[in-house]
Amino acid sequence: MITFSNISKIYENHAAVKDINLQINKGELVFVTGASGAGKTTLLKLVYVAEKPDTGSIVIAGYNTSTLKEKSIPFLRRNIGVVFQDFKLLSNKTVYDNIALALRIRGVQEGEIKNRVSNALKLVNLRHRSESYPLTLSGGEQQRVTIARAIVDEPTVLLADEPTGNLDSGNARSIMDIFREINAKGTTIMIATHNHDLFRNTGLRVVQLEEGRLIGETVG
């Protein structure tokens, strides 16, 4: 589903990601781990084309991100749900409208949007907050809104960047349950995290980054 071949991304003489070769299969749930600054976020950005690699290529769902025409980028992104590390929620829109935005962009009818947003909110346990504004929510709640927005269109690929960064362990576990549930429905998932508790004893693939290099792979 996602193939990284010789991927490098260099910021001002400094390689954030270097010579990455990685294959992620359809339906897999893979963790990317490593210390802060190891290159996890950069690796995900390269997938949803927020950054272009300096060398190598990434093929995702049949699209090669290096040769992709600029005007096709939105359509690639519609196959990818992203849980951003900094959420990227719009503070002037309600929780409902933030989640609905992902569907409005795709031209979904309002009636259907209502159903799907309400299902997504149910999944992250935030139905009672649908009319609140993001800044009135706790960090953990904002994180769950971001997750709801990422999954509301049932994407082929889900990328989650530190999705439990603001959650206590109980909430973190329930978020992991949501990911596994979505994964069971066939969505391919990459989770970037420095939190080892998240993958301990899961039996899932864990890819380790260190200073931009892929240094090993274990089973959680």
């Binding site: 939105p74 992203v82 990227k88 002037n92 935005l101 962009i105």
Partner: peptide, 15 residues
Amino acid sequence: DEIETYKLLGATAGF
């Protein structure tokens, strides 16, 4: 910032 988010969520230039 809002437009940046729109783009990342898959909005086209027309939108």
